[in-house]
Design a binder for these strands. Structure first.
Lengths: 228, 228
DNA sequence: GCTATCTTGAACTGATGAGTTCAATTCAAA
DNA sequence: TTTGAATTGAACTCATCAGTTCAAGATAGC
């Protein structure tokens, strides 16, 4: 019996309440396989691009037979969407956690901003994040929906969270009167822009020292422009 | 006789000193055809991506037979490289022209920067420029060389030209003592970052008013941070 | 054990597309 | 007008790859 091709993802009738199906040997069991496929798919897509990625290669990388892939995901498109969404979700989580830290800092504004910048840059420079952005950009015309979905739930929300923090800093008098959303957008630009430039759009590594320097420069310019 | 596949591009033995071969009816003649193919190739690549672009489609769009395409360009890769390079070259030219204008401005710093910013944003938002960046990013892993070649001769040189202008402004006391290269990098980031954000990586249009606002905000922040 | 579900390998189908071949034709130049 | 190079359309080769099929195992729950 085949029960794929319903709603883009297969649902095993038995796994309606699926605990760990194979707690002893990892890699066996439906869920482990599904995760392995998603992970392998992301890596292969990141390496080869959507069009060049062969489903056989993904199956091989996941240590799984090709029909198993199609048992979990209706087709290549669905697999691509879910793999990308999963990784984007992870990236978003890290970003938001970093921004959140800004709230409970008690130190001087400069050191807090430098720290925030450095951490955001770490997220930004992360290999998987770079791959997500590249794939998103590459397939923007082929998958318009995925682009809006993911991009709005990442870049968008990070800047929004940042704006929220900045709004508080305006209220407590640390920053001058200004539009927090614009300040957030610019702070992010001061980090991402030079990184983009120096990393040649992610195709080259940027040294830790250079990354730190970018964060310091961004914080400096931001403070000159926005501190009270 | 076939004389393609030598050095990536075909050279007609007869056209060693080729004037206009068909001045009356445009579209005929080797050079016109070559240009038409390059242009069509860029458009199809931009629309479909490298892998999805069919050479037949390019030939059709250029109003030319498929063997003619292969008569001018050894293979799809070469065609891609040359088409992209040609368009990147054009984009670079416009950018540099805009930056050059900054030197002969006599007005107030703010209005000069706002003007510069607005013009750079126009370049940045141009459809073909967006397409170049998208393709470059998309195929960065497939064509590492093209990426470094083009990117270094565009983003790189624009920022360098900008840095040169800023160095003069430091010397004549308009800007405070600072690293002009860093100032240039940040000014560009203050323009490109928000544009990237608002246009959702080029997938959505940004209104002229919004573009103007971004330029004003960038100039404002830059002046607060760098003006003497 | 028995049964239903899931996995597997391998082979297969059908589509797509790069690059070639060729005979017929157009065209510019001499 | 003649000549040689360039163009054209159409058909062809060959490779790749998405997605399927199937018969033969695993595997878990009962």
């Amino acid at each position: 019996m085949r029960w794929a091709s319903i709603g883009g993802m297969a649902r095993p009738p038995t796994s309606q309440s699926p605990k760990a199906q194979h707690p002893s040997t990892p890699g066996t069991g439906r869920i482990d396989k599904r995760a392995a496929i998603l992970d392998a798919a992301f890596q292969v897509f990141a390496r080869d691009g959507y069009a060049n990625a062969a489903v056989d290669a993904i199956a091989a990388a996941a240590g799984v037979a090709k029909p198993t892939v199609y048992n979990h995901f209706t087709d290549k498109q669905t697999l691509f969407r879910e793999a990308l969404a999963a990784d984007a979700e992870r990236a978003l989580g890290r970003n938001l956690a970093v921004v959140q830290r800004l709230s409970d800092g008690r130190g001087e504004l400069r050191s807090r901003l430098e720290d925030l910048g450095a951490r955001l840059i770490e997220c930004y420079a992360d290999d998987r994040s770079v791959a997500v952005r590249r794939l998103l950009c590459a397939e923007a015309s082929t998958f318009p929906e995925i682009h809006s979905e993911i991009r709005e739930q990442t870049g968008e929300r990070v800047v929004a969270a940042l704006a929220d923090r900045f709004a508080h800093l305006v209220l407590d008098g640390t920053l001058r009167e200004c539009d927090p959303a614009q300040a957030a957008e610019q702070f992010e630009a001061l980090l991402a822009g030079p990184m983009e430039h120096r990393s040649r759009s992610g195709s080259r590594k940027v040294s830790a020292a250079a990354r730190r320097a970018i964060a310091k420069a961004a914080a400096d310019t931001f403070i000159r422009a926005y501190a009270r």
